[in-house]
């Protein structure tokens, strides 16, 4: 009995450690493969120059500026509508909806979370794109707005369910007090519960953001992927993720271009890592305060 228990214990401890090891391994691989890139590229130029032209006959340039801006743009655009809609929906579900509606909608939102991003990207090409091109009189609708809308849709389930959890865990004594003062359910959730659950809701939005900034397939399909500095939301954009996805398959191994793509991956890894860490910290602060 004792041996069996120790064995199981050991097995799962190994699993847990393995997860940590994999994370460290990925980071080490990215760093290790990125370093050679900077033998030829100036790191300042890499981070701040806009031009990304690794296959030029004249002079290769490796500036990720336009990709950074593109990634930030589609992410910001996505959050711009996903955050208000997501929080509003969470508020509605946690306090206003009847139990029947809530029981019906919650599983549907979870299903939405499970839709493969390639399917959402598909919708961007055949559905959202044509609407955008007609509305704005553009030759095609593959641009930052399209990507933002789709990414927002993808972030919604995360934002809704985590915000809803945060709102539901606010003590019932607050909502009782508010309702007893003649506040409506909407007023109660917006004015009392939301401020009380704010850190949880912020963490939910940041996790949604983490998903969005790392998303590849949707931006690859729906944003047009022109490697130039976008001027506005109707421009085609190419994010860091789509650049890696497009180019890594065709790049000759162990060239500066190859290493530079890993460096792009490293930047992306650091960004998402920071977002996740930050949301984790916000969440812990919140749980600590309530406990």
């Amino acid at each position: 009995m004792k041996i069996k228990e120790n064995l199981i214990h050991g097995l799962f401890m190994f699993n847990a450690l393995l997860v940590v090891l994999v994370l460290i391994g990925i980071f080490a691989l990215l760093v290790n493969t990125s370093i050679p890139a900077f033998r030829e590229i100036d790191i300042k130029e890499f981070l701040f120059k806009a031009a990304w032209n690794p296959t030029s006959y004249v002079k290769e340039t490796y500036g990720i500026g336009s990709m950074l801006v593109s990634s930030v743009m589609v992410t910001a655009g996505a959050l711009l509508f996903a955050v208000p809609i997501g929080i509003g929906t969470a508020a509605y579900l946690s306090d206003v909806a009847s139990p029947g509606v809530r029981e019906m909608v919650k599983p549907i939102i979870e299903i939405l979370a499970g839709i493969p991003s390639v399917v959402i990207g598909f919708l961007g090409i055949v559905f959202v794109g044509p609407i955008i091109s007609r509305t704005f009189g553009l030759p095609n609708g593959l641009n930052a707005v399209n990507g933002s809308i789709l990414l927002g849709v993808m972030a919604l389930p995360t934002i809704i369910s985590l915000s809803e959890d945060a709102l539901s865990s606010v003590s019932k004594t607050y909502s009782d007090a508010s309702l007893a003062l003649g506040a409506s359910r909407w007023q109660t959730v917006i004015r009392v519960k939301l401020p009380a659950a704010l850190s949880g809701v912020i963490a939910a939005c940041m996790l949604g953001m983490g998903r969005v900034i790392g998303e590849t397939m949707i931006v690859l399909m729906a944003t047009g992927c022109a490697p130039a500095m976008p001027k506005n939301f109707l421009d085609s954009v190419r994010t860091m993720t789509s650049t890696i996805a497009i180019e890594l398959g065709e790049v000759p191994y162990y060239t500066t271009h190859y290493y530079a793509l890993f460096a792009v991956g490293l930047v992306l890894f650091i960004i998402t890592f920071c977002i996740n860490m930050a949301s984790d910290m916000v969440l812990h602060k919140y749980q600590g305060k309530r406990g």
Partner: peptide, 10 residues
């Protein structure tokens, strides 16, 4: 209404 446990808002 006043409740059993004081419940001021944060």
């Amino acid at each position: 209404m006043v409740f059993q446990k004081s419940n001021p808002f944060p």
